[in-house]
Design a protein around this nucleic acid. Structure first.
Length: 490
RNA sequence: GGUCACGUGGCCGAGCGGUUAGGCAACGGUCUGCAAAACCGUGUACAGCAGUUCAAAUCUGCUCGUGACCUCCA
């Protein structure tokens, strides 16, 4: 099999062959959530994209150290409360300790990840747990001549840095363009240049989260934690850094500057950026008010949703598009995904019940190669899914007898489906929604079904249809098949 | 205003110069007492205008439209 993985590196803007620095080990860093409010589906898409990266690299046999941080301090709000820590602000509003907020939303985040079957990372470091490392990094940046202190705050000297290196390489900007577009921010008058950004910020009056430092009491700059923690756990140079497209500038640009400034190295070789989830063509974001929480999505309790959708339906929906493309969220698309996902899983179930033949008319090896090729092409889950549907068609044809599969081929096909559906794509069998009814309910329905069966045997179709219709009215759908009658509640 | 994307058939969504993407819906068929479900099969496309090429959805230019980033944001 071809095992060359290509990944789109947003730094070079090219698809590059993936060559780990220290095979079989791979270092993967992904920007995690800021835990000051509930995560929405847009966030989920991003973490799902990198869940696939983690899963597929593992499938290929790499030993992946996957680091995904929790941002529990340090991001500023931008409105009237300029300079105040987001988490601190929320804490005051709800009269809770900052770390209470952090804990609450961290728990919520983990719950959501579990719901969508997104695997936990190998290390999940917090910003507050790495203040020492961040201060040390500030010191190194100052020592290298790229940082300066003004009244308890330390800023990164972008202009100086740009003389030696290339600020804006990742996002394709040049600092002269940027200059004409900067807006008034807190501390702007302290900076040598409007482009400079804080790597340590003095705690103003009323600020709740702050720590002593060589520059006075304050807190780390907005971009510093990822540099500090990726360096600590993955080294000055590592393989992949991922995050949402909206973090490219300034966050990731600043990370690169800090890495080079402090360590003399870029940090990651490959940058991967996941694209946005949109709603009616617009980015899903808290500020737009168009974000669904997972709960709203599952229950369908949201003004933009016609019905509820299961977590795996949503997972399937998202994986039917490439992570680098925007994906538009709509009821029609979700409904389509719901059916498609069911078709795939039904195919998997059918596969389990297939009986082997003495000969084989199918080519499992070719299918497997097609699946691997799809994933090797920049984690193309949509292509992989289309290949699995080819497999479903084959499975159904085997069932009807139009195709034949030997015992060995069947075994391989089962392995293939299991590996790709559950391990790589990360789907999970969902409980039969319908089966949620009690044993008593099920027994009563079975009773009705047996009465109907008796009526059918007597050719009393009027009674048979009446039973079926009455059941339909109370939300029970009957499905006749050669072996008997199944039912679905709801 | 600057930077960067995108515009594919009823809907979603692949496509990276020449071969059917795929799913949903629609239509036809098989099965069934009927129905539902299931299964099999089938179609319509590349925003517009020029250009490059034997060949363009795919490359180039222009036009129109949409979006992201430039400020916290996955």
């Amino acid at each position: 099999m071809s095992s060359t993985l290509f990944i789109t590196n947003t730094l070079s803007r090219k698809k590059e062959e993936f060559k780990p620095l220290n095979p079989p080990h791979v270092g993967l860093y992904v920007c995690g959530p800021t835990v000051y409010s509930d995560v929405h589906l847009g966030n989920v898409r991003s973490f799902l994209s990198f869940d696939i990266v983690f899963r597929y690299l593992s499938y290929l046999g790499y030993k992946v150290r996957y680091v995904r941080n929790i941002t529990d301090v340090g991001h500023l709000v931008n409105d009237a409360d300029e300079g105040e820590d987001k988490i601190a602000k929320k804490a005051r509003l709800e009269e809770l300790e900052p770390m209470e907020i952090v804990q609450k939303y961290t728990n919520g985040f983990h719950d959501v990840m579990r719901i969508f079957n997104i695997l936990p990372p190998s290390i999940e470091p917090t910003a507050t747990g790495h203040l020492i490392e961040q201060m040390e990094m500030v010191k190194r940046i100052i020592a290298a001549g790229y940082g300066y202190e003004v009244d308890g705050s330390v800023y990164f000297d972008v202009r100086k840095y740009n003389e030696d290196h290339n600020y804006g390489e990742l996002s394709g900007r040049n600092i002269d363009d940027l200059l004409s577009n900067t807006r008034a921010l807190d501390g702007q008058d302290q900076k040598l240049d409007p482009l400079d950004f804080a790597i340590w910020k003095k705690a103003e009056q009323g600020h709740i989260m702050f720590w002593p430092s060589p520059w006075g009491e304050g807190f780390p700059g907005w971009h510093l934690e990822c540099s500090a923690m990726s360096t600590k756990y993955l080294g000055n140079e590592f393989d992949i850094h991922g995050g949402g497209m909206d973090l490219k500038f300034p966050h990731h640009e600043c990370e690169i500057a800090q890495n080079i400034g402090a360590n003399g190295k870029n940090g990651p070789r490959i940058w991967m950026h996941g694209n946005m989830l949109t709603v009616q063509g617009r980015k899903m974001a808290k500020s737009e008010g168009n974000g669904f929480t997972p709960e709203e999505l599952i229950t369908g309790n949201h003004k933009l949703l016609d019905q509820g959708y299961s977590p795996m339906t949503v997972r399937f929906f998202m994986l039917q598009s490439h992570y680098g493309s925007t994906l538009d969220f709509s009821n029609d698309a979700l409904r389509g995904a719901e059916k498609g996902y069911k078709r795939l899983m039904d195919g998997y179930e059918t596969l389990q019940s297939l009986t082997p033949s003495g000969e084989s008319t199918i080519d499992v090896a070719a299918l497997k190669e097609a699946c691997i090729d799809a994933m090797n092409d920049d984690f193309s889950t949509p292509i992989l899914i289309s290949k699995l549907f080819d497999g479903v068609k084959t499975i159904n044809l085997i069932k009807t007898g139009a195709e034949k599969a030997s015992e060995g081929d069947l075994k391989e096909l089962k392995e293939l489906f299991h590996d790709f559906i559950f391990d790589v794509l990360g789907f999970r069998k969902e409980d039969e929604q319908s089966g949620a009814g009690s044993d008593l309910t099920a027994s009563l329905i079975e009773l009705a079904i047996s009465l109907r069966k008796a009526a059918k045997l007597n050719k009393d179709f009027t009674t048979a249809d009446q039973i079926r219709e009455e059941l339909t009215k109370i939300g029970v759908t009957l499905k006749d098949n050669p072996d008997g009658t199944d039912f679905i509640i709801g």
